[in-house]
Design a protein around this nucleic acid. Structure first.
Lengths: 150, 150
DNA sequence: CGCCATTCATTAGACGGCTAACGATTCGGA
DNA sequence: TCCGAATCGTTAGCCGTCTAATGAATGGCG
């Protein structure tokens, strides 16, 4: 009885959509909130650092940073000592979003898992962790998915 | 103890990546396989039908269809009786992918859930179903996520 | 019968991701 | 000291997904 793949995908899509809706009326897009979260914790990080932390490629962060700069959430400034580096600094607007965004995220998570008992929630997290680990292994192994299944 | 959102997102990303890798060496991109699956089951569907079945918007299907036509997987042809409609017809190449793709998908699913007991798998599916339902409700309700949480 | 609302597909453009190619800068070793 | 290797960010371009705007065809109602 397969169909786990589709279920997980469609769940993700639904969750994403509602999270995006939630963020949108705070004036930002989904994904930007992750960058912001890192800068709230420590301002002036570089795109590379952020990308590594978020498990995302550098170009992705660069693009987001460009939009966020346009939106007035942060500014770019090259590092004085190492001119290859660029550091992202929050604006006042970027800092101001911290409290509402964090609150919104928590509320969303509670809403979504409201139908689960505490035990169910723990099992869910455990199961997802296992699956993710498997997926990462497959990726690292040069995905022998088409080779002999054994 | 939040963090379910991030876990779910990162799991999805990993799963997606490995699935995409698997599809790529069969010569197609992730997402195309869903369109193909529908056409295998019934050839000659319209973009609108496919979009509705996949819970995706019509433009998404149109774009994929364009690429898939370029890739030689299917052809477009307008319906004779209702000229507004466009019907997508598999080419021989598109039909030929059925067996390998389905096999690959099943293998992938087994790999990913290999660390779960049967009970765990069932609980996982149950939990995801509940969460997805919640998410869809929130979307439908005009997402009162920012309104009074009560 | 003719016109307007409905129904489809397509196009345009945005977001989040990714890979590949470039360009600039720093650093280390000969 | 100087040049090539390593390190960064940026650009270009593709995939999947969405919304909004356009365009073409059908259908129903007066």
């Amino acid at each position: 009885m397969p169909e786990f793949l589709d279920l997980h995908g469609s769940t993700n899509k639904a969750v994403r959509a509602v999270a995006d809706a939630g963020m949108r009326h705070l004036g930002l897009h989904l994904g930007q909130n992750h960058v912001l979260a890192l800068l709230w914790e420590q301002d002036g990080r570089t795109p590379g650092e952020i990308a590594a932390t978020l498990h995302v490629t550098t170009p992705t962060v660069v693009k987001m940073a460009t939009r966020m700069a346009t939106a007035g959430l942060l500014t770019r400034r090259r590092d004085d000592r190492d001119n290859r580096l660029v550091r992202l600094w929050l604006t006042e607007a970027g800092r101001a979003l911290r409290q509402p965004v964090e609150q919104q995220r928590e509320r969303l998570e509670n809403h979504l898992t409201a139908d689960l008992t505490e035990a169910e929630r723990e099992q869910l997290i455990s199961a997802l962790t296992k699956i993710r680990r498997r997926a990462l292994e497959l990726l690292a192994d040069g995905d022998p998915t088409d080779a002999e299944p054994r």
